[in-house]
Design a protein around this nucleic acid. Sequence first.
DNA 1: AGTAACCAGTATCCAATGGATACCGTCGAA
DNA 2: TTCGACGGTATCCATTGGATACTGGTTACT
Lengths: 120, 120
Amino acid sequence: MTKGNAFDPNCPTRLVLDRIGDKWTVLVVLNLCQGPMRFTQLKDQIGGVTPKVLTQTLRAMARDGLLTRHVFAEVPPRVEYELTELGHSLRAPIQAITDWAEEHVLQVMASRTGTLDQDE
Amino acid sequence: MTKGNAFDPNCPTRLVLDRIGDKWTVLVVLNLCQGPMRFTQLKDQIGGVTPKVLTQTLRAMARDGLLTRHVFAEVPPRVEYELTELGHSLRAPIQAITDWAEEHVLQVMASRTGTLDQDE
DNA sequence: AGTAACCAGTATCCAATGGATACCGTCGAA
DNA sequence: TTCGACGGTATCCATTGGATACTGGTTACT
């Protein structure tokens, strides 16, 4: 459908782009690739995320069908988040982005600090 | 270097992730892939972006070495933005993301609206 | 002569978002 | 009895994003 006009703000692709463009979403996917995980575990893994924001992220991702939220009726409470098939399918493209980031971070940092002596 | 710990907030990969995770950055790259472009042209192509934000985005991208900003001493003024080699190298991973978005947007929308009758 | 348009932005203001911090209830362990 | 684990909320504030209006030099139009 309407290939390439993610430039149209009404294009649904933009909505999807907004979600997966989210910093935390990317990190959540990368974590959950390895299997289901609990809230606190996730929070500890992903440095710097506050519980509020993590909750928001997870809820939004669940709403979009990227992951499931499974509450166990236990005490202490246990909630597991697990990628859906859809969520798993995001892994490859996200990996492409993070690979790029890791590969080129030095160039970016060099450019950012005005050090223009990168010759790669 | 330190593969996989984009989870550490101090990891430079996070910084890069923040930039390329930016909605407008992605759209700018996609536009500039086809060749250099002027400010207004870019603004018109990318629906919904305000000049202030576009300026911010372009400046940040230039700072990070993703594109160059070429000012022509003409009147009316002309400023051309062009991807650097580094910027071009971002195309593939970004394309992977947008392709995913276009492929799965229906599933996401279906999940979002609660319509669970999506079966490919 | 006056005026409007072009271009690449600023300036200003307001709403939404992100993030820091503190707190909650339930239960078992010390 | 008080503490900690767990999975979050509640509250507050700073930063950001976005909408709208404006600038200035020149040329084209009326």
